[in-house]
Design a protein around this nucleic acid. Structure first.
Length: 743
DNA sequence: GAGCACTGC
């Protein structure tokens, strides 16, 4: 029987690697004897299933980097550089297709800089959908150029502006460029704008593309007039265009060069949108990646993932593993199971370290995943953040060799997630190929059959088609674009979705009955980088003399959960929460937390250095079961919006201990989220009639007041409302007559 | 007595 098992074992190894059968057997037998017994013991431990656990292998090639530093690729690079610069010179709009991490993000702006596109003081702006990417790419490019960050090369993201008057290559988030457009509608300081990762089709990217298209049209006609080439038709077109571009007229502006970078085959969509714009494919050397599918659907993919982890660990001599899971709970259980099974392996094979990553994990622990494993150890990252580690930082992935993906229940995003898996393998291979003698096939294990994968293909929808549009509407209106449905979106949002988003804006007083931005409130709301209802709360609180409190509460509501409750310390964390809790609800509880932390910070600053004070604050957070990352984020948001309201000339006053004033202000702002208790303990949302329950994390979960307002509705197993404040039912017709008035 | 995750200003 043992012989039979050994034979099966060998057989399974061969089918896995598609290597030459005999060389495999020889190399296998040539390995040390303990290794053989380890595999054998492992096989017995897991049962025969492991031995037959094989995948259908499919080979795929991915486009490799332009900047991989071998001699060949350097020659190639010069070619690409000349070619691209020439293309940009000849075309005002260019679509560049190339895989993420291929180097186009870091290289193209440099080519353009040296190609003379900043000669008249123009800036090359590169937008990224995410902050981390903007920062890390800027750092990398500054390094490559040998300059200090913030000089020639800089970045600007919310809370962090690392640019100066001498910055010529500026990385930023797309949302930030949209904000810039509010102040300078023709984006006059930019000579080139590169929209990176356009295929992700975030709302910001989509709105930005529409905006850039108009800006470009206007700027080219303006410059034609300046150069004495006025053509009536063109000029007319520009004037008929959008009123928000009027300030461009009369200014001396060069045409705006626009480059859309996309990783996928969506290039055609972008090209058509920009009037058959030229599209170029940036392609480097190709490296193979094996994609492995299971023969059958796996009923228990956690088990399958676990088996695959150990299979890789015992069979592959080097390389780290990245496993995609769906959430904290799965990560914790897989981590536990990995450790359990690891203990059953001989000591020499126990060199496997697990690194969980999920959002509520404190940042110190999250950062550990960025460190390489100690020599001789294999790292297994268990990740449910999907994009965070791999995608946001294309420069980071360096050691991952194997990915285990599985189907995610969020069908709409399934394709994206799997796409990441591919990219992961690819990016990894790029890195490996750049190091001499380390070329080898990357592998991506998909724990489902190929037929399942094909089902995912058609399921991505641009975010703008499925998200709430009130923010977009507010921003476009602030730019003077009143006809939202007529705006030249690459994908038009649904008409009913637009109308649905207009209504709350009207009720909040941001829009007139003609759907124009209201003079004061509407413009003020558009200026604040917040959800419309939060902006409304700030504006109102300034009139009701509790802006100081509202700034804090809005900041605390704008970040991820402030409280951190590890399962093993549930009781302690509850006790900690009680120290801050207010019987009036979660908003006041958050206010108490902020005040307490502030008191601690002020005291600490007097006696300690900045670093020490920060360290102490983290300790304070830990002791009080507060997520220090969230709190720091809230403090950042707080100072930013405080600056914003000061600039807008709002009066910042405090209501002191008079929480009645504050709660009335909450009611007057969040009236669309008012709910009444029903006899069965459920709540009915007054504006929609929806039946909901108070989320168990709320302070008011037990006390269940008669009438409340809430911050957010989350739909999971039930309709839960989170962050709740007790109000008086009679306040509603008084404070929000437009919604609850007697007619 | 619940808990999918992520992004942006």
């Amino acid at each position: 029987m043992m012989v039979g098992r050994l034979y099966q074992l060998l057989f399974s190894l061969v089918t896995f690697h598609s290597r030459d059968f005999f060389s495999d057997i020889f190399s296998f037998l040539g390995k040390s004897f303990p290794f053989l017994t380890v595999l054998l013991g492992w096989g017995l431990f897991f049962g025969t299933r492991v031995l037959f656990y094989s995948f259908v292998v499919k080979r795929a090639s991915y486009i490799a980097s332009m900047h991989v530093g071998s001699a060949n690729s350097i020659c190639f690079l010069i070619e690409v550089e000349k070619l691209l610069v020439e293309e940009v010179r000849n075309n005002n709009t260019l679509i560049v297709v190339g895989e993420t991490g291929s180097g186009k993000t870091t290289q193209l702006p440099q080519y353009l800089f040296y190609g003379g596109f900043c000669r008249d003081g123009g800036v090359i702006g590169i937008t990224q959908p995410r902050r981390v990417a903007a920062v890390s790419v800027a750092k990398r490019v500054a390094e490559e150029c040998g300059v200090a960050l913030g000089q020639k090369v800089g970045y600007a993201i919310r809370f962090d502006d690392m640019t100066s008057a001498s910055t010529r290559i500026k990385y930023m988030t797309d949302g930030l460029l949209l904000r810039e457009a509010l102040l300078d509608p023709c984006l006059s300081k930019y000579s080139v704008i590169i929209v990176d990762e356009a295929h992700e089709r975030t709302v910001h990217t989509d709105v930005l593309l529409g905006l850039l298209k108009s800006v470009q049209k206007t700027r080219s006609s303006v410059s034609k007039v300046m150069n004495g080439h006025a053509q009536n038709g063109l000029l007319m077109g520009a004037e008929n265009d959008k009123s928000f571009l009027m300030p461009c007229h009369g200014k001396k502006l060069s045409p705006l060069k626009l480059i859309i970078m996309s990783a996928s085959l969506d290039a055609r969509v972008f090209s058509e949108y920009f009037g058959s714009a030229r599209a170029v494919h940036v392609q480097g050397r190709q490296y193979p990646v094996d994609i492995l599918y299971t023969h059958q659907p796996e009923s228990d993919y956690l088990d399958a993932a676990l088996i695959t982890i150990f299979q890789i660990h015992l069979e592959e001599s080097h390389g780290d593993i990245l496993v995609f899971l769906t959430g904290q709970e799965e990560i914790e259980s897989v981590e536990r199971l990995v450790h359990e099974r690891l203990r059953q392996l001989p000591e020499g094979n126990q060199k496997l370290l697990t690194f969980p990553i999920f959002s509520s994990l404190p940042s110190e622990k999250q950062m550990k995943v960025f460190m390489p494993a100690p020599p001789g150890f294999r790292k297994v990252s268990l990740d449910c953040t999907k994009m965070n580690v791999r995608k946001t930082n294309p420069l980071w992935i360096s050691t991952t060799e194997y990915g285990c993906g599985q189907k995610l229940w969020f069908h709409q995003q399934a394709k994206v997630v799997i796409g990441r898996t591919l990219q992961l393998a690819k990016v990894n291979k790029l890195y490996c190929s750049g190091r001499a003698g380390r070329e080898g096939p990357g592998k991506c294990y998909r724990l489902y059959p190929e037929s399942e994968f094909d089902k995912f293909e058609d399921s991505t929808t641009p975010e703008i088609k499925r998200c709430d549009l009130s923010n977009v509407i507010l921003q476009l209106k602030a730019l003077g674009i009143d006809d939202i449905a007529g705006f030249d979106f690459i994908d038009k949002p649904n008409r009913t979705a637009i109308i649905r988003s207009l209504e709350p804006l009207f009720l909040l007083g941001a829009l007139t009955e003609e759907s124009k931005l209201t003079d004061i409130v509407g413009h003020q709301m558009a200026r604040l980088p917040l959800e419309p209802v939060y902006s409304k709360a700030l504006i109102l609180s300034s009139q009701l003399n509790c802006l100081e409190e509202m700034l804090i509460v809005v900041a605390m509501l704008s970040v991820e959960s402030i409280f951190y409750a590890p399962r093993e310390k549930l009781e302690e964390s509850r006790a900690a929460l009680r120290c801050f809790s207010s019987p009036e609800g979660d908003h006041l509880t958050l206010l108490n937390v902020f005040h307490a932390s502030n008191e601690f910070v002020v005291k600490n600053k007097l006696t300690h250095s900045k670093e020490k004070a920060e360290k102490n604050l983290r300790k304070w957070c830990k002791d009080n079961f507060i997520n220090s990352r969230s709190l720091r984020h809230a403090r950042d948001v707080h100072s930013q919006i405080q600056r914003n309201v000061e600039q807008m000339g709002l009066r910042i006053t405090s209501c002191g201990d008079d929480m009645l004033v504050f709660r009335r202000c909450l009611a007057a702002s969040f009236f669309l989220n008012a709910a009444l208790k029903q006899p069965d303990g459920m709540y009915r949302i007054l504006s929609s009639g929806l039946m909901v329950q108070i989320h168990p994390s709320s302070i008011l979960f037990r006390s269940k007041p008669e009438c409340i307002i809430f911050d957010k509705l989350v739909r999971t197993n039930n309709n839960y409302i989170r962050n709740i404040c007790r109000i008086d039912y009679l306040w509603l017709p008084e404070l929000a007559p437009q919604c609850y008035g007697l007619q």
